[in-house]
Design a binder for these strands. Sequence first.
DNA 1: AAGCAGATATATCAAAATGATATATTAGGG
DNA 2: CCCTAATATATCATTTTGATATATCTGCTT
Lengths: 181, 181
Amino acid sequence: MAREKKIDMVILGLLSHEDLSGYDIKKRIDSMISFFWKGSFGNIYPALKDMEEAGLVNRISESDSGREKIIYKITDKGSESLKDWLKDEQAVNEIRYETLLKLFFGGALDKAVSLANIEQFENKVKGDLRLLKGYCENLKEHLDNDDHMYYYLTASFGVETYEAYLKWCMKAKKILKNGVV
Amino acid sequence: MAREKKIDMVILGLLSHEDLSGYDIKKRIDSMISFFWKGSFGNIYPALKDMEEAGLVNRISESDSGREKIIYKITDKGSESLKDWLKDEQAVNEIRYETLLKLFFGGALDKAVSLANIEQFENKVKGDLRLLKGYCENLKEHLDNDDHMYYYLTASFGVETYEAYLKWCMKAKKILKNGVV
DNA sequence: AAGCAGATATATCAAAATGATATATTAGGG
DNA sequence: CCCTAATATATCATTTTGATATATCTGCTT
């Protein structure tokens, strides 16, 4: 089986809901799943080209006006490819936290530096948590709608983990200041 | 200011504690920080070469016996570079969770598929949490030692977040099964 | 003592992701 | 009418990832 690029699956997933251009896809990624997945023009546009060649998507319109805009539609083959990936229980989940990296090596400098890094992290998390809670409250009202429910589930993952981050921040600051648990 | 590769900082951070070979560095990354950061031979060895040229590290021994082994030592310049990075409060923190991606697009298939994906994730997390809790309990005894304290802080981040993951798993499974909050 | 598996050790490569930049068009506000 | 911001595609250098190649050494078994 050919190794699948993750960005391909993201694109197919989005196209399974609606026809989109590369630019639209980038916007959807940024607004809906950016807190746990990212995409860039640098991999979206080449992926669309490759997938068109492979018959997973079709371009269904191009430049209605003078402005160029290429809208893509998922094909049956693309849909099958998406489902195969969804059914495969293997999943790579990873975090990449520079804040933790700096903390781990914090011994090279005064504890005040580590404290500042944690506080910086804490503030960022507080802002993001506010946003995610907002999404969740709106989505909660429409759990009968499947699309909203799946969106709600991922957003609530964010809420749950960000709250844990804040809990950890308080604990970590205390330990750094007092050296106690 | 030159853009710094993250792997460079990881290597300098590790070398600030002890002299190491590229292979040693990979082992340290895998055993101590792999749950929030990764490294591969493919970027470690080239990074060591580049940093040696830039005067951030020195090779202090090579092939005592017939077996080739290059040990690196951090230089003053390397140490400064590490400290500059630590002092910079900017930090990129990102998660990349394929499980959430599959859940987000789960509507394309039966809910049983999403449930299976969550359960797979849950089992993985349970195992990892057990490990992290073990580390934490050992490290907790030595918070007076700075190195152990910084290690403890990062490990306890893992414990806190993994516990939140499990809490979310239970909630998510309930919603998928019953459609309620 | 021979043989073999597994750990040690460095190196390299294709593929993928990242982040930035280039280019051009269009819509809306002042 | 001009300017800014948003729309839209495309490309590129840099970095990371994951796999593989090559060779040595250690410890265990037979």
